[in-house]
Structures are given as C-alpha cells and as structure tokens.
Amino acid sequence: MILIALYITIAMVTLAALLNVYRVIKGPDAPDRVLALDTLYVNAIALIVLLGIALQTRMYLESALLIAVMGFVGTVAMAKYLKRGSVIE
C-alpha cells in the first residue's frame, strides 16, 4: 500500500515541479521567476525525502537539509538583487 501511495506522490510532486518550471520560463516578471525557483527547491526536498523512503535509506536526508539551507540563502540573495539592482547594498 505504501508503495502505491509513494508512486502516486512521486508523480504528483514531479508534475508540481514541471508546473514550476513552466512558471520559471513564462515569467512574466523577475519576482515570479524567483518565486518559482523557490518553490522548485522545496519540491526538490520533497522528491529527495520520497527517494529516501523508496530506497529505505536515511542517507539522503542531509542533502535535503542542505538544499533547504542553501536554497533559502539563494532566494534571499536573488530577492536582494531584485530590490537594489546589486546583491549587496
């Protein structure tokens, strides 16, 4: 039962990631693209956790945490860039 749920969930998250990619490409403004990238990294975390369940290993959780940490810094940096025209004020 878990396996079926797992496959359906992986399919849904992948579809979500594709929708985010659509928003990254379409825009129309820079903040939209950054927001879509932000959502994309959160989806990547979900996919990694699901992969961990599928392969029955907790090895990948550090990488999920790593993406969460660095993704946030990245989003803040990009938002800062949009605000000032340069990353650092």
Binding site: I8, A11, M12, L15, A16, R23, T39
Partner: peptide, 17 residues
C-alpha cells in the same frame, strides 16, 4: 500523509501556474 502531502504540493504548483 504521503498522498495529502503530494496533493498539497501539486495544488501549490497549480496555484503558481
């Protein structure tokens, strides 16, 4: 929980799109 999580993730992306 898996299905609910997947559904919400998908809905968030649909909202974004």
């Amino acid at each position: 929980l898996l299905l609910v999580g997947g559904a919400f993730t998908l809905i968030g992306a649909i909202g974004l799109a």
